[in-house]
Nucleic acid binder design. Structure first.
Length: 277
DNA sequence: ATGGGTACCTGTCTGC
DNA sequence: TGCAGACAGGTACCCA
């Protein structure tokens, strides 16, 4: 699922309601991608002081009774995960694999495929969290993400620019939907080797990545199947996609049939007429 | 350092 | 109706 817009929509729909809540209990369902890394009883009594995002990860900052730093939970939604917040607790379903009972309500991770994870870490900058966050690229809305930086980062890459965008070590948060969408808007053939993308085209790509993510954010993300925000609402950006999942349909710009190819075992959608190497 | 492939797991859809 | 196969928003890890 969830690329940056979906994760950020989750954070925004959650943070105001859960900030300050005290944890009164926790429940684990089936195993997720990694073990929690602490006894669930250790979480009880801690307070959620903040929810932040890095790439596609969410970080729930925890405080102890004396307001001292008390670690946190790093959450990833994987391919099919979503977080839901409900004031009234309910019985877990077969896909509900992590519950955090709080004084404000129930925070629940639903994840049919279980590629998601909830990992405890003593801090965001050390231990398990730091290890997972290490090597992530720059945030797409960080001013450091600019044409010169992208051009420099792509200079040594022979892989296709689509795969370089997806890798997450140059810029974070651009997943399979938004990589195709951004490349279409920038007019760049997704098969172009990274090192062949000119500085001028890097500038267009930076803008396109930001535009697409911003539009998706405003639409509440994309819901292909599983994604819901913390209030259970679908995203709507999938209806605004210009190329993703539109194989054979006419390009909105030139009318040519859109194509689907496979790059690194992932589908890529593009217009072979509008997007050039 | 880069890049290719595999693995994790479950649900849904398509075609025979 | 049944069943096999393809495919789905991600990413760590292993081996060239």
């Amino acid at each position: 699922m969830p690329e940056l817009p979906e994760v950020e929509v989750t954070r925004l729909s959650l943070s105001g309601r859960i900030q300050g809540a005290r944890i009164t209990g926790a429940r684990l369902g089936k195993p997720l991608r990694w073990p929690l890394g602490c006894d669930t009883r250790n979480l009880v009594g801690r307070r959620i002081s903040d929810v932040s995002r890095r790439g596609k990860y969410l970080w729930f900052e925890l405080r102890g009774p004396d307001d001292a730093e008390a670690g946190g939970l790093l959450v990833h939604l994987g391919m099919s995960g979503s977080l839901n917040f409900a004031e009234q607790p309910s019985q877990p379903g077969p896909w509900d694999h992590f519950d955090l009972l709080t004084t404000r309500g129930l925070l629940r991770l639903t994840d049919p495929r279980r590629f998601g994870a909830v990992v405890w870490s003593a801090s965001r900058d050390e231990g398990a969290a730091a290890k997972l966050l290490a090597g992530l690229g720059v945030e797409p809305f960080d001013p450091a993400f600019d044409a010169r930086m992208l051009h420099e980062a792509l200079r040594m890459r022979r892989v296709a620019v689509k795969q370089a965008l997806l890798a997450g070590d140059i810029v974070v948060g651009v997943g399979n939907i938004y990589a195709s969408e951004a490349l279409f808007r920038a007019g760049i053939d997704p098969r172009t080797p990274g090192k062949r993308v000119s500085l001028a085209r890097c500038a267009r790509l930076v803008d396109a990545v930001r535009d697409v993510l911003q539009l998706a954010l405003a639409a509440g993300g994309s819901t292909l199947r599983d994604f819901r925000n913390a209030h259970g609402m679908n995203g709507a950006f999938q209806h605004q996609a210009l190329v993703y999942d539109r194989e054979g349909l006419p390009c909105t710009r030139c009318g040519a049939a859109l194509r689907r190819i496979v790059q690194g075992q992932r589908s890529t959608y593009f217009c072979a007429h509008c997007q050039r190497r």
